[in-house]
Simulated assay, not measured.
Amino acid sequence: MSPQQKALLLSKKHGDFELGSRSIPSPGTGEVLVKVQSVALNPVDYKIRETGYFVTDYPAVLGVDIAGVVEELGEGVENFRKAIECKITLFFGLAHGNFTNDFGAFQHYTLTDAHFTAKIPPSQSFDSAATVPLGLDTALVGLYGNHFGAGLTPPWTTNVVESKTPIAILGGSSSVGSYAIQLARLSGFYPIIATASPSNEELVKDYGATHFFDRNLSGKQLKAAINKITDSPIGIIYDAISLPETQSVAWELLADNGILVLTLPASVKEDEGRGRKTISTFGGPHAPQNEELCTSSWAVVEKWLSEGAIQPNKYEVLPNGLEGIIGGLERLKSGQVSGTKLVAHPQETQ
């Protein structure tokens, strides 16, 4: 019988989360077995329960933000091989999980795809590293993806020079928004305009926003304020919130032939006369359309974190291990979390 582990299971479609057990998987070719120390929560985790999207097999293990101890390497995994050859027996990784049980975050041990797994540098903790994968990938695909994004040139593939090209990011204190700001900085955008709650102004500026505006401004008010800092048209806007009201504001700002990147389906209608278009992004690196881009970006994640080019999100640690995730998801759903990622420690499960 295979060794067993504790896991937080979604019992059935639209069902309840329950603590249970399942077998510890073994890594196949190109896979890594991780002892999960920290997981970060995301809205998609409770939306899967509500909608039934992405998951077909129940009981289901959810969660995609993973940080932990690398326990075992499958055949063909090279990005951790050097550490083993150097007699390093304990090393740490962060990874973007997937919507299948063996690759889910909410359990003691999980498999990860080596292409989307990176070493955690000494400057980062398990908790901070766990806040990175989904938020960074969603921001990154939205900006640089050719299918689910604006198709910009990735900054890690070219020499970047600061331009006078503005970008606006709505929801700059959200996880996705914070990484969009940082990537915009790496891409040389200026000014980097961000909206958020006034209480998160300093946080958003710490991420790299050059100009901050209250998220409660109307489209006309925001446009008037932005016109005072730049007379360049805003050809790209990343709406990290993507509710109908934020999309309406973004549409008011967007220049002719501009691109509005969304994290939810579009509620505004594209207008051929002005050439503006919307793109609903999807940050899953395992999607065939994203594999090449994300394999390339994950190769530099350790370097970004080590050098401080990318800062992880602020976080709050939840009590009670896997069981604490249940209450954490309820807080996310009810809008009780702002500018902070909720993180749980699966190994602390009683």
Rank of each mutant, 00 (worst) to 15 (best):
S2N: 10
Q5N: 00
A7D: 02
H14M: 05
S21V: 15
S21H: 11
R22G: 07
G30C: 04
V32N: 07
K35C: 13
V39K: 00
V44A: 15
R49F: 12
G52L: 00
Y53D: 10
V55M: 04
P59A: 12
L62Q: 11
D65C: 00
E72A: 08
E78C: 10
N79V: 04
K82D: 12
I84K: 04
I84A: 01
I84F: 05
L90Q: 13
F92W: 13
L94V: 03
L94N: 01
G97N: 03
A105G: 06
L111C: 05
L111Y: 02
D113N: 10
A114D: 08
F116N: 05
A118N: 11
P121M: 01
P122F: 03
Q124D: 14
Q124H: 09
D127K: 13
A130V: 00
P133V: 01
P133K: 09
D137K: 01
T138R: 06
L140G: 13
Y144A: 09
N146F: 11
F148P: 02
G151A: 07
W156D: 08
K164A: 15
I167V: 15
S175K: 00
A180Y: 03
A180V: 05
A184S: 14
L186D: 06
S187N: 11
A194C: 06
A194E: 05
E201W: 08
E201D: 06
D206P: 01
T210M: 10
H211N: 10
F213M: 01
N216Q: 07
K220H: 13
Q221C: 01
N227V: 14
P233A: 04
G235H: 15
I241E: 02
I241G: 07
L253S: 09
L254C: 12
L254N: 09
G258N: 15
L262N: 03
S267F: 09
D271R: 11
D271A: 14
R276F: 09
T278E: 01
G283Q: 02
E292W: 15
L293Q: 08
T295F: 06
T295K: 10
S296C: 10
W304R: 11
W304K: 08
S306D: 14
A309F: 14
N313Y: 02
Y315H: 09
N320P: 14
E323F: 09
L329F: 12
L332H: 05
Q336E: 12
S338M: 13
A344S: 01
P346V: 00
T349C: 01
